[in-house]
């Protein structure tokens, strides 16, 4: 089975992706809601920027993160001055990279599920005495929840596999930023290390497959729910 070091790599990867998802999910939901329901100038620009990490070479995304979060960067300089923290070469930086790379996938999945919510049901809730917030919490959110969860699982799988932006942004530091894919890459650099590569790669495949299955299952459940709208 896995060696203690390999378990530590898995634990680090799960921590990086877990934190990335916890922070990215509310952001992704907010953006998805804005893009689904909002009518404001610059909407297509927001849409394009959100999708940028999906089409940019990951190394460019990593470099842009480096510029933004570096000591002299706009975000990094502020973090340093306000809190005395830096995310460069830290696992927190790896989480930021993982979150940014997962964001477009999550926004897409969540937005589709918000688009699919029948807005006339929200009108019905209003006539029954529910204010806008209660309508959101009791009608809109439960109806789009399967899509939100599917987006979360998809984003988690994407962030577990994140490589290019991470290695560019926070490098390859054992125990700090060497996540599963980076560990596989490192193991490949050492001749005669095939066993470790096989084990880590197998683990990667298993994690991704599980995430895809769960995501598909959630998406199907969402469709069943929506079929029930038609009376």
């Amino acid at each position: 089975m896995l060696t203690p070091e390999e378990w530590a790599i898995v634990a680090l990867s799960l921590r990086v992706s877990g934190v990335a998802m916890a922070v990215t999910l509310p952001v992704a939901f907010g953006l998805a809601y804005l893009l689904s329901r909002g009518r404001f100038p610059g909407r297509s620009l927001v849409d394009a920027v959100v999708h940028l990490p999906l089409v940019l070479p990951p190394v460019v995304t990593g470099w842009l993160l480096l510029l933004a979060f570096g000591r002299n960067g706009p975000v990094g300089g502020w973090l340093e001055a306000a809190f005395g923290v830096s995310v460069i070469f830290r696992w927190t930086g790896a989480a930021i990279a993982a979150g940014i790379m997962a964001l477009p996938l999550m926004v897409r999945a969540i937005r589709l599920s918000i688009d699919a919510v029948d807005r006339r049901l929200e009108g019905a809730a209003r006539t029954l005495g529910a204010g806008p917030w209660r309508t959101f919490a009791t009608i809109t959110l439960p109806l789009c929840l399967p899509g939100v969860l599917a987006g979360l699982v998809l984003g988690f799988a994407r962030s577990i596999g994140e490589f290019g932006a991470t290695i560019t942004f926070v490098s390859n530091i054992p125990g700090e930023t060497r996540t599963l894919p980076i560990a596989i890459y490192s193991a490949l650099q050492i001749p005669g290390n095939d066993d470790a590569v096989w084990r880590l790669a197998g683990l990667s495949v298993a994690l991704s497959l599980a995430a895809l299955v769960v995501s598909e299952w959630l998406a199907r459940r969402g469709q069943d729910d929506r079929a029930g709208h038609v009376l």
């Binding site: 006339r120 049901l121 109806l143 729910d225 029930g228 709208h229 009376l231």
Partner: peptide, 10 residues
């Protein structure tokens, strides 16, 4: 009372 009932499916 809407034409299609519009009950909450969930």
């Amino acid at each position: 009372v809407f034409q299609d009932g519009r009950l909450f499916p969930h």
